[in-house]
Design a protein around this nucleic acid. Structure first.
Lengths: 144, 144
DNA sequence: TAGCAATAGTTGTTATAGCAACTATTTGGT
DNA sequence: ACCAAATAGTTGCTATAACAACTATTGCTA
């Protein structure tokens, strides 16, 4: 734990990298006329995987605030990619799931996402991936 | 470049880690009554280092959109931590620098930031830092 | 079982992010 | 010298992020 990295801008580098990725994804979505944002895509991905979940679970799965999830879902409902269903057993809960159009959107966009991930990882190895994962997990766990 | 990581959510992990750090920093700023946001701090840091620079340079240094910089500077000016000066040689340019109160704020907040960086890097080595830096730099460079 | 705490979700507000459109200047090519 | 292109910055708009306050339920406990 020397000053060399205590004073170094790792936060800045994480932020800059993430913005670069996010902008690249968004530009590609726009260029292909996908009419979707990066974060809307992340929710679609989780809804495809989990079929039918509450706002709360979706927030936990995506590391998003529940208010943010609520508003993104609102936009996805307007686009008719997602539908909400009030729970009958616990009337506080609202379940969310993809519409058929939402499933199509997922299948339509997914190949692009895989390609873009490949682009980001060019010249990096499986070991690099594991190292990145490990280091980020430690940092995440260190923070109270 | 196997499917194991092409399909894995590295974007998500970066995003989640960054949010964790950002929220931790902000909570600490608030708890100590620093009356400043994380991104405002990043600008202060750069202004302290570079003394007197334009919005444009600040945007480049921080990986922020120039419109975002313009608005954050506006808030810092309202807090009287920063002052703007129109350039005389090129009248499109606006130079920005810390006020004496801004310098004090920087010196007041900096020890907290160093402590929080230490917390994030607990149990990690200098080599880990270099690995993270290397991997993020490669990803950054891969993206057009 | 009455009442209070906890939980799920929405709404309001402020900040950051990025694009488009705009003004004001400066630069470059002819 | 003139006009088009480029540059610096601001403003308007939409989306994401987070906190606080609020409603509507459900669970817990005295």
């Amino acid at each position: 734990m020397h000053d060399t990295f205590v004073s170094n801008p790792s936060f800045f580098k994480l932020d800059a990298t993430l913005k670069k990725i996010r902008n690249y994804w968004q530009k590609n979505f726009d260029a292909q006329g996908k009419d979707i944002t990066v974060d809307q895509w992340l929710l679609l991905e989780n809804l495809y995987k989990h079929k039918r979940i509450t706002h709360n679970e979706l927030a936990r799965l995506t590391s998003k605030d529940i208010t943010t999830v609520s508003r993104i879902i609102e936009l996805l409902v307007k686009k008719e990619l997602v539908e909400r269903q009030g729970s009958t057993d616990d009337r506080r809960k609202v379940y969310v799931q993809l519409t058929p159009a939402g499933v199509n959107k997922y299948k339509d966009v997914r190949p692009m996402v895989l390609e873009m991930r490949k682009t980001g990882w060019k010249d990096l190895t499986e070991k690099d991936y594991q190292e990145l994962t490990r280091i980020l997990d430690v940092i995440y766990g260190n923070i109270p």
